[in-house]
């Protein structure tokens, strides 16, 4: 991590001036070794402290713990995780990520690069991102999957803390599978985005999220569309198959609690098929769980 502090406020707003804020890159490498998954690289950096949790069968588990307030304006944050052939990794976070304005009006970036090899699987289930009033975050998810890789990815965005207006957030999620683009999706919410809170995009909802499941088994059985959510005032979601072997749940809800309920319902739907697909190197992988109890071996 490098921490560049700026004591001169004018430097902060100079477009070509030195970057203000923190630069940090955390790295995780998961590898299959004799029937289990090891973590040859587990390098935290800056705000990302990486804790290894108890393995679950052959699946290694990691919890991202926020070591300091981030992202703030001007921060350049990055997480890279690679799951090598045959390995299984489950990543969660201990607390929500809170984007704040920070000392400069410059936006923050938060880039997540995930690579999953042949017959490997990754569950990436962090807690929500909260976009506090005045924050400005550009987030990218760049995901490369081998054609036999499996992925469960959840992302949740909470637009403003209780009772405050939303910050600005722009995200791009690009998922490639076997080198072809499976899903490419941008979202932009908050001040300055035309129509973001209007009837076509969010219509007053303050929580939105997605659950992406990529599984080669979906090449044989195309999953059915599902409409989720009971009363419209509690939020709405749909699960639909993508053009490739994957499903995407798209949800919009008034708040984080009701968003989590919708996504939780959707996640239960696919818990079974994923575990049924079989063991990673002869061991049961078990259902995905979002809890995060740090352990010291």
């Amino acid at each position: 991590m490098t921490l560049t502090t700026c004591t001169h406020p004018k430097t902060a707003s100079a477009p070509d001036g030195p970057a203000v804020g923190m630069r940090a890159t955390a790295r995780i490498l998961a590898a299959a070794r004799s029937g289990t998954t090891t973590l040859p690289v587990l390098d935290g950096d800056g705000p990302f402290e990486l804790r290894r949790l108890h393995s679950h069968g052959a699946q290694a588990r990691v919890c991202i713990v926020g070591a300091m307030s981030a992202p703030l304006g001007g921060d350049r944050l990055r997480i890279e995780a690679t799951v090598q052939q045959g390995a299984a990794l489950h990543v969660t976070s201990a607390a929500a990520t809170l984007a704040l304005r920070g000392p400069t009006s410059e936006h923050a970036t938060y880039d997540v690069h995930l690579t999953v090899g042949e017959h490997a699987q990754l569950h990436w289930l962090p807690k929500p991102l909260i976009c506090a009033a005045g924050s400005d975050l550009h987030q990218t998810w760049t995901i490369d999957l081998a054609s036999t890789a499996r992925l469960v990815l959840r992302e949740e965005q909470i637009l403003g803390r209780a009772g405050e207006p939303s910050g600005h957030v722009a995200t791009r999620l690009t998922v490639r599978r076997g080198g072809r683009t499976l899903l490419d999706q941008q979202a932009a919410y908050g001040p300055g985005e035309p129509g973001w809170d209007g009837p076509a995009i969010l219509a007053g909802h303050r929580a939105t999220g997605q659950l992406l499941t990529v599984d080669p088994a979906f090449e044989e059985i195309t999953p059915d569309v599902q409409l989720l959510g009971d009363a419209p005032q509690d939020g709405q979601a749909v699960l639909t198959p993508l053009a490739g072997p994957a499903t995407l749940v798209t949800a919009a809800a008034p708040d984080s609690l009701r968003l989590r309920r919708l996504l939780g319902t959707a996640q239960n739907t696919y818990r079974q098929p994923l575990t049924d697909l079989g063991p990673v190197r002869g061991r049961d992988v078990g259902p995905p769980r979002a809890d995060c109890r740090p352990t010291r071996a």
Partner: peptide, 22 residues
């Protein structure tokens, strides 16, 4: 490449389109 093309999304358009189809 084709990544240059925008991919802007609208959650409610997506959700309600699927609901409407039923």
């Amino acid at each position: 490449g084709f990544d240059a093309l925008p991919a802007a999304s609208a959650p409610l358009l997506d959700i309600t389109a699927q609901q409407h189809a039923t």
